[in-house]
Design a protein around this nucleic acid. Sequence first.
DNA 1: CTGCATCCACCGTGATACTG
DNA 2: CAGTATCACGGTGGATGCAG
Lengths: 128, 128
Amino acid sequence: MEKKNTELPPGCKVSITGLKDVQDIMGGKWKYRIVAALYFVGKMRFMDLKRHIDDVAPKVLSKELKDLEMNQLVTRTVCSTKPITVEYALTALGESMQGFIQSMADWGVQYRHTVIKKPVGNTLRISG
Amino acid sequence: MEKKNTELPPGCKVSITGLKDVQDIMGGKWKYRIVAALYFVGKMRFMDLKRHIDDVAPKVLSKELKDLEMNQLVTRTVCSTKPITVEYALTALGESMQGFIQSMADWGVQYRHTVIKKPVGNTLRISG
DNA sequence: CTGCATCCACCGTGATACTG
DNA sequence: CAGTATCACGGTGGATGCAG
């Protein structure tokens, strides 16, 4: 099995594997928004989350949450209330993403300022 | 035009717009790897890049590069050599992404350690 | 309220072959 | 060498309806 020359220089510190893992875990259109919402708002029920996040289709939200739960970034708690409700919350692991998510968002804001030159709005809404 | 309740708490510092911008710009399967390769290896020709990055199909690599160029993250320089060659390099803007890309990759490595519990390899190849 | 089932349209990705 | 053309395929996201 022939190895191709895919080596990076010795000083290289970035892990492509790490990048790919993150892309797998956070793939899809909504995961970053879900995590951000849960981080800043705290645990939420399904419909609250849905309303916060641009009215994503329930099927899609459900799937995204299931993915996040499987990867141990979110917990799902069923409350035995009258009509059943379910609460979602970030795990410690999920919260630990805030660091680079923040960096990413900040870069995006900076990019918008310097390149797109259009306002960010007031950066305080989940949708838009 | 009815506004939905999509407000985040006043202390919120993350910009969803910023996140979406980054997702738009860096969408697709290969862009992070391309940027990482160009960052650590420096300017490269098309085929070199292709070889570095897991032998991605030329059509796909071409498209990704065109996207990155359009968003001013890479430059494309045609060299009038015998058979024409083209060099791709990061712009300052592209290099400025290294910060959060690094954070993201590091988080991914940490995640792999604590959750997947499988080795990262030696983190020094673009593919794999 | 939650979220699954079904159906469907679209796009991203990929293999291969070909042109300048 | 640096791409483009063509074709094919699967996954993702979305609409709607229904079930626990």
